[in-house]
Design a protein around this nucleic acid. Structure first.
Length: 110
DNA sequence: AGGTTGACTCACC
DNA sequence: TGGTGAGCCAACC
């Protein structure tokens, strides 16, 4: 695994229970905004041994990953709400790390 | 080497 | 809301 993937995994591991993050958000936190596709790829290849909460990552619209039917039940198990259209209610559950003070380092796990 | 493919996003309709 | 098209970039034919 390369350093960039490691960085992504660290950030994903820091997503709190009951919250979700978007691929773009994570790409931004790695210092490489615009690389959301790379985030998706890294997560799709994430080793199971890491036991990452990758179900807490959705796309910018709140849609869950295509072809992964277990993601939604997992989210609902943490009391995350879905809109009638099948999207995560981002207004309610989006990880608000972007609003943290600058003094905190989002790349450090909590 | 060059075309295709994605767990994506944005700007427009 | 939802569709489309362009930009994106590493992995994979």
């Amino acid at each position: 695994m390369n350093e960039y993937d490691e960085q992504i995994y660290r950030i994903v591991a820091a997503i709190p229970r009951g919250k979700v993050a978007t691929y773009g958000q994570i790409a931004f936190l790695t210092g490489c905004p615009g690389r959301s596709r790379m985030v998706g790829r890294a997560l799709s290849h994430a080793p199971a041994a890491r036991k990452l909460p990758c179900h807490r990552v959705v796309n910018h619209a709140g849609r869950t990953a295509p072809g992964w039917d277990e993601q939604r039940p997992r989210l609902e198990r943490e009391r995350i709400r879905f809109n009638p259209n099948g999207m995560v209610d981002l207004d309610r559950h989006l990880w608000d790390v972007a609003f943290l003070p600058q003094t905190s380092n989002p790349e450090e796990p909590l």
